[in-house]
Amino acid sequence: MDDTRRSFLKFAGISALGLGGISTLTSLMPGPATATKGASAPLYKDTNKALTAKRWGMVIDTRKLTPSLCEKMIDACHKAHNVPNHDNERHTIKWLWEDDFEHVFPMKHDEYLADRLDNLPILALCNQCNNPPCVQVCPTKATFQREDGIVMMDFHRCIGCRFCMAACPYGSRSFNFRDPRPAIEKENPDFPTRMKGVVEKCNFCAERLAEGKMPACVEVSEGALVFGDLEDPSSEIRKVLRENYAIRRKQNLGTNPSVYYII
């Protein structure tokens, strides 16, 4: 080996060590967000089409929700992401689903709840918390937070310990208790299918945002869902939040959800 090559390798090795050291240090700092933020240099090619934000958020206008609309949005989501439909209830996988007000907001249930809410299906999904407990507890960083706030899963790194499912206060995570592939009605080749033994959940359609498309559920929502940058004061989502009183699920836990509900 000639000298330049050797010194290059030496340099590369030392740099790698240094970088490793930095990432270890940042991961020791408080707050799970700091563990992944900042260190990620873009490894992909920028197509310029991608929709970007400082912190993606969603507003669900429950006044516009109807059972058929909810079904349409759930269907769009589950088809886009190859979410299987298992017969056994224990093995259920769901990214986006509907439930009663008293279950989506268990602490806000009221005996004298407005009639409208009593029979209304409310959408539930991953809250893409800005302070996500699931990221904090994951022992392999298989679940991580991107700079734009989206909490993502690396299906290839997940060991299936399900710590994130215990940590999530919203029941937003599902585990592949069996091979999901036979239970997928029609496979969408644009999104990976999963294997048994890993956890999955809503990803705010990160794969669609990268192509300049809005999330699948938002696209078919007929205006019931508003999606945008929570940190951009001129964004539509901020306008909607300025003009309407909106609540978030279990806000008292400090997870800082990015999904708002107009009641």
Partner: peptide, 29 residues
């Protein structure tokens, strides 16, 4: 029992490859 509970036991060593001090499972190991 921990290994029996893992969905992907063959990836067990990811806990060592990607050590994560914020996870109590890392410290339990």
């Amino acid at each position: 029992f921990i290994i029996a509970d893992l969905g992907q036991p063959m990836r067990l060593f990811n806990v060592l490859i990607h050590p994560t001090p914020s996870s109590m499972l890392f410290w339990d190991m």
